[in-house]
Amino acid sequence: MLDTEALMRIGLGHYIALSGIIFSFGMIAVMMRKNVIVMLMGVELMLNAVNLSFVAFAKEAGNLNGHIMVFFVMTIAAAEAGVGLALAVAIYKKFHEVNIRFFEQLKG
């Protein structure tokens, strides 16, 4: 039995639910896609979902520590995208494709 009043009053729970759904989509992308770059996009999607829950909790708590954490997560995500794409370029130079099945042949 769904409570219409609870559905209409937008609260922390709604944002956490949205964040969980987007996170699971990112997780499916990382596990099921074969292209390394699309897998990196899945990681970005997961990090963004976590950012959404951080901001929602920051509003709930009434202080800005969650915003600082989102700021740090964004910086780390930009660095991670750079490193991941550099590795993809290095793989592409050898195999002329960016498919995850080539990663089992890496040497050193």
Binding site: A6, R9, I10, G11, L12, G13, H14, I16, A17, S19, G20, I21, F23, S24, F25, M27, I28, M31, M32, A56, K59, E60, G62, N63, L64
Partner: peptide, 30 residues
């Protein structure tokens, strides 16, 4: 794989359902 992702989403939804609070700005909020 889809079921494990759905499990994660279900855990988040369950947690969200058990914490239905409304985002009212506290007194000391910016």
């Amino acid at each position: 794989k889809v079921m494990s992702a759905a499990l994660i989403a279900g855990l988040a939804l369950g947690g969200a359902r058990s914490s239905v609070t409304v985002l009212d700005a506290p007194a000391g909020a910016a």
